[in-house]
C-alpha cells in the first residue's frame, strides 16, 4: 500500500532563498511522524507546501494514492489534511463547540431562514470530545477562559472533527506546563489509535521521541535523517539537526 502522504523531491524558493531543496517526506496510514530540524531548516515551509499554503517550485505531491495539487489550505482540508497552528487558531470569544464547528457550522431551515443547529452541534461536539477523551470544565465558556492545555485539546478536536486523515501539529506543547504537555502528547497517541496520521513539528526532542513512530530530520532544506523510533536517540537527532555525521 502506498503511504498516505508522499512528497518527492520538493523544491521551494522565496526569491534568492531556497527554503526546501529537493526534500522527500512521507507519512504512512495511522503513523505519527516527528519532523525536527533547526530554525530555517524548512520544516514549516515543507508543511505549508503539503497544506497548499505554498505552491512548490518542483517535485511531486501524492496523497492517498493520487497525485494532487493543493491550490490553497481549503483544498487540502477538503482532502482531509488539517493543520493545528502554533497560535492555535481559536476564536477566543467563542465556546469550544462553536470553535470546533467554526466555518463548518450545521444549519437547518426554519421559516425560510437558515439557522444554526445548536443542539445538533452541541451533541456531535460532545460526542467527538468524548471519543478523544477530552474533558473540559465547561462547554459554555469562551475558550479564553480555558487553560493552555485545554485550549490545545480544543484545537486538536477542531482539527479532527471532520474526517481528518492527517493532522499536522506545529509545536503543540511548546507553551504548556509539564503535566498539560503530557496530556496533549497522550491525545496525539489517541489519534493514532483512531487511524488518524499525524505530523508533529517540535523543538522538544523528548516529546518527539515519546510519541513518534518515525522521525524525519531536515537540515537546510534537505532530508538528512529518517529514523524509525527504535533507531532514534537524542544524540543521533541532535547530531543530524546541527549537521554533524552521526
Amino acid at each position: 500500500m502506498m503511504p498516505l502522504v508522499e512528497m518527492r523531491q520538493i523544491v521551494k524558493t522565496f526569491g534568492p532563498v531556497m527554503a526546501v531543496r529537493g526534500a522527500d517526506f512521507s507519512v504512512n496510514h495511522g503513523e505519527v511522524v516527528g519532523l525536527v530540524g533547526d530554525n530555517g531548516a524548512g520544516k514549516s515551509t515543507l508543511m505549508k507546501v503539503l497544506t497548499g499554503v505554498h505552491q512548490p517550485d518542483g517535485g511531486e505531491l501524492w496523497f492517498a494514492g493520487r497525485r494532487v495539487h493543493f491550490g490553497s489550505s481549503v483544498d487540502s482540508r477538503r482532502a482531509g489534511i488539517e493543520m493545528v497552528y502554533q497560535d492555535l487558531g481559536l476564536a477566543e470569544n467563542l465556546n469550544p463547540i462553536a470553535n470546533i464547528f467554526l466555518g463548518r457550522e450545521m444549519t437547518h431551515s426554519f421559516a425560510g431562514l437558515r439557522l444554526l443547529s445548536e443542539a445538533e452541534m452541541d451533541q456531535a461536539g460532545r460526542r467527538h470530545l468524548e471519543n478523544l477523551q477530552i474533558r473540559l470544565p465547561s462547554l459554555a465558556l469562551p475558550v479564553e477562559r480555558l487553560s493552555g492545555g485545554q485550549r490545545q485539546s480544543v484545537a486538536i478536536a477542531r482539527a479532527t472533527a471532520f474526517q481528518a486523515r492527517l493532522v499536522i501539529m506545529d509545536e503543540p506543547a511548546a507553551s504548556l506546563a509539564v503535566a498539560e504537555a503530557a496530556k496533549v502528547l497522550l491525545l496525539i497517541k489517541r489519534l493514532r489509535e483512531q487511524g488518524i496520521s499525524a505530523v508533529l513539528i517540535s523543538h522538544r526532542l523528548q516529546d518527539v521521541l515519546d510519541v513518534s513512530d518515525r522521525i524525519v530530520v531536515l537540515n537546510r532544506g534537505l532530508k538528512v535523517g529518517d529514523l524509525p523510533r527504535e533507531e532514534a536517540t537524542m544524540e543521533r537527532l541532535v547530531g543530524l539537526i546541527v549537521g554533524k555525521a552521526s
Binding site: 482540508r77 487558531g89 476564536a91 477566543e92 470569544n93 467563542l94 467554526l102 431562514l113 444554526l116
Partner: peptide, 28 residues
C-alpha cells in the same frame, strides 16, 4: 439578534471580532 446569534454569518462576525486569524484559518 436573530442574525447575530442564530445564523452562520452572525457567528462568523463574532469570530472575526474575537480573533481575525482564527476566522481566516477557518476559511471565513
Amino acid at each position: 439578534w436573530l442574525f447575530m446569534s442564530k445564523t452562520r454569518t452572525g457567528r462568523h462576525i463574532y469570530a472575526i471580532g474575537g480573533s481575525p486569524k482564527a476566522a481566516q484559518y477557518a476559511g471565513i
